[in-house]
Nucleic acid binder design. Structure first.
Lengths: 217, 217
DNA sequence: GTCTATACTTGGATAGAC
DNA sequence: GTCTATCCAAGTATAGAC
């Protein structure tokens, strides 16, 4: 643990003073977005939570907006890799809905979607921020689309369902459910919904599955 | 048009100086929320747009948050009455989806949902604001639920579908689609979705409608 | 009762210290 | 290269003018 910051011209190693401060700021930015929203995510509020001088935000990230984007980046990459492992061995649509419910519940409780929602809503104020946020949501849509297509491949539904549009709707619903759940502090309605969706998916599997002998009257 | 504001102790009439200023402020608050978001909706910005002194906001509404709530009230009542006339003569589910698409398109272009989304997201910052916003969203959910129940009454789907949960999902989707559409300035994906939903509703009507002779294999 | 001028607080950004 | 002290703009709120 060489902590001497004097002779370090190399910045690549993870223990450098710079990267340490950056990480603290990013973590604090995430926490502030969750607790105080985009409005409360000021340089002073974030720096105070990180325990550093607020000027460091402008030195390391150039602006508050850039720091918030870095925070969004951190959450996005972290979540997407986690989703990947969860969805890896998912076969049927009803299984996918079950995993989606699990993902939603975790993200909701941990406040990850809050970061996303606040950034989208807050982007209206800062010029140019919207494009940057949109670029970071793209992977979420692509992930959803890939998962949907994989769950439906081989099924007759696969050719009927426009996966891109459905993925768009899923992400939108994800965001909307977070907003409503977060607003009245009650996650039950949203979780109920996933339960219903799963039953519905099972129904669809029974009707249009590969095994046609079980189709009910 | 008695414009003399000196001897007016009565405040009921709509042309009074006070109500006129209030109306200007509410209109300006709506426009500011749409253009600049919750973050940009400061007392100065709103008052500047309304062409009045910013101190008037605190005199007439007590705080910026209260003015924004008044703006949300204005939008909510205006929209809900409008929805009422549109959904009045709607019979089948597919018709309801068609009307919902029309409502969404209008609201999206006029920026009405933006006001709602910004208020929800912004509520994280101001203590107590969340409860007030939630109270103003309740009617939207009730409206959606009533419309869904009416479109499904008589159909076997009516007893299967949990209308409250579906209404919750519809409002959430409505909000989420607005966020995404507004973010990348492209309303096509959302509108495509409504078209797909309509086709799906028609399929459901054919399968489980009152006329059972048309059920396909 | 209605409005304006002013006080005070917080926020973004940088010049300069180490 | 890293960080702090300081500056100025923008925000909320009110005391007092009309």
């Amino acid at each position: 643990m060489a902590k001497s910051g004097t002779a370090s011209s190399v910045q690549g190693k993870g223990g450098s003073r710079s990267t340490e401060t950056r990480r603290h700021l990013v973590d604090a930015a995430i926490a502030t977005l969750q607790d105080e929203g985009f409005v409360g995510a000021s340089a002073r509020a974030i720096a105070g939570r990180a325990g550093v001088n607020q000027g460091l935000i402008f030195y390391h990230f150039g602006s508050v907006a850039n720091l918030l984007l870095a925070a969004l980046d951190a959450v996005s990459t972290d979540r997407l890799t986690h989703y990947g492992t969860l969805v890896a061995d998912t076969g049927s649509p009803s299984e996918l809905v079950g995993v989606a419910a699990e993902i939603f519940r975790t993200d909701l409780d941990a406040g990850y979607i809050t970061v996303l929602v606040e950034m989208i809503a807050g982007a209206s104020s800062t010029p140019g921020l919207g494009t940057e946020v949109a670029a970071r949501i793209g992977p979420w849509r692509e992930f959803a689309q890939a998962a949907i297509e994989r769950a439906l491949e081989g099924s007759p539904l696969g050719t009927l369902v426009p996966s891109a549009d459905v993925a768009y709707a899923v992400v939108a619903l994800y965001l909307g459910l977070e907003m409503l759940s977060h607003l009245d502090g009650n996650r039950e309605p949203a979780l109920n919904l996933f339960a219903h969706a799963r039953q519905f998916a099972q129904l669809l599997e029974a009707v249009s599955g590969t095994d046609t002998s079980e189709v009910p009257a």
